[in-house]
Each structure stands twice: as structure tokens, then as C-alpha cells.
Design a protein around this nucleic acid. Structure first.
Lengths: 118, 118
DNA sequence: CTGAATCCAGATGGATACTG
DNA sequence: CAGTATCCATCTGGATTCAG
């Protein structure tokens, strides 16, 4: 114990657990896309997100939004319109994902070219 | 057509599709952790990754490594030992994920504290 | 408009045992 | 050591219908 290699490996395991923690929150077919949609508009309504994220169903959108809310990444506000509308907004904590979203956007663009253009 | 708002929305949809492209590759319970494991050691053997990523089974590790290989993120090299050993390494393309991995590691650490400490 | 409820096929993933 | 094969429970997610 106390040897350098062991210490390094422990550090490494901690890092891997940390990445896992992130992915536990962000995994899900649509989560990142949903966050991305809300992110760049500031506030976004249910039906707008439904339109932004191609392919998502209202069932899944509802479900994943709820999980994001539980993880304190988005807030949900019911507006007193008739019929009601609901606005979703990133929390301060959710906003800290912006860098990651931005990186993923860039990487995805490059990756698509990489795979398609071979 | 050609109006600013529509253009912006089209741009936005493209960005969302790009994030989705990234997530299509990176989704999966263990993928990021696996990449993370290989990443910081340079090369990494099957059994080492199995040990690094707590909870993963050999079945899943094998499966997800194969998918990562298909997406050209890792290479697989069989070493002529007895019994054989296999080394996995990030490709140049896979290495471009380092920034994202690093960000996810940091974010995961913060997020854990955030959720646990409320 | 924003969901919730139900139904159901197919994917996911763990446990275990086996192979070269 | 590095997988593969099989079995099987659970989860995922789409389609559709209904509700406040």
C-alpha cells in the first residue's frame, strides 16, 4: 500500500466512476438532444422541444424531462394560459453542461463525416 | 423563406442532430467508461478494462468494445502470447474524445456532490 | 396543449457455462 | 486469457388512446 502504481490506479477508478456518474444522468436516447434544444433557446415549451428533437414521442419526451427535473438539470413552469402551456428551462446546474453539449455537437459533426466518407 | 428565424431554427435542428450522432455512438451503459479506461493508460488489455470498469461483465465488455471498433474509436490487437492477450488502443479519432471525457469526469464529480449534498 | 395510461414487441443486460 | 453461447428477466420505447 502507498505505492505509486496503486495510488494511480485508485485515482483512475475514481475518474471512471465519475464519468459513469455523468453518463447515468445523460444516458437515454433523447436526453442530450432535449437539453440541447432548451439550452440554445433559453426557455422552451413542450411542443417546441417535441418539434426540435426529431423522432421523439410525447411519451418519451415527458419521461426524460421528468428525469432531468429530478436530477435538477431543468425546471418546469406551468403557464396560466388556456389551454395550459409548460416552459422548460435549464437550471444553473444544467447550464454547466453547455461546454459538453458544445463539444458533443462539434464531435458529432466530425464523426458523421468520418464514418460516411470512408 | 430565407427569414432569419427559420434559418436559426434550421441551424438549431442541425446542431441537435449532431449531438444525437455523438450520443448514438457513445450511448450504452459502459462505453464512455471503457474509453476512459483505455484512454489514460494508452493501451489496455481486456482483463484490465474488466477490472477498471466496476460492474461490467465480460459479455458486455466484449460487445461494447466491438461496437467501438466498428465506429473506429478503438483498435484491437492480438498479442502472440500463451495464452493470447489482447490489447485495445484508442485510434486517432478516438483520442479526439479526450476533451469530452475530461469534461464529463469533472462534471460527474460536481454533479455527485450536488445531488448527494442536498 | 401537456401529458398519463395501456399494450406490446424488441432490445438490453446479468448469470452461467463453455471454447480455443 | 479472451471471448462465445444460451437462457431469461427486465427495461425500453413506439403506437394508440384518453384526460385535465
Amino acid at each position: 500500500m502507498g505505492c505509486k502504481i496503486e495510488e494511480f490506479q485508485q485515482e483512475q477508478k475514481k475518474r471512471i466512476r465519475a464519468v459513469q456518474d455523468s453518463m447515468d444522468v445523460l444516458n437515454g436516447k433523447w436526453k442530450i438532444a432535449i437539453i440541447s434544444s432548451i439550452c440554445c433557446y433559453g426557455k422552451r415549451r413542450f411542443s417546441d422541444i417535441l418539434n426540435d428533437v426529431e423522432g421523439v414521442s410525447n411519451r418519451m419526451l415527458s419521461k426524460e424531462l421528468k428525469e432531468l427535473e429530478i436530477n435538477q438539470l431543468v425546471t418546469r413552469t406551468v403557464l396560466p394560459t388556456q389551454p395550459i402551456t409548460v416552459e422548460y428551462e435549464l437550471t444553473e446546474h444544467g447550464n454547466t453542461l453547455q461546454t459538453i453539449i458544445s463539444n458533443l455537437t462539434d464531435w458529432g459533426t466530425v464523426h458523421r463525416k468520418k464514418i460516411a466518407g470512408k
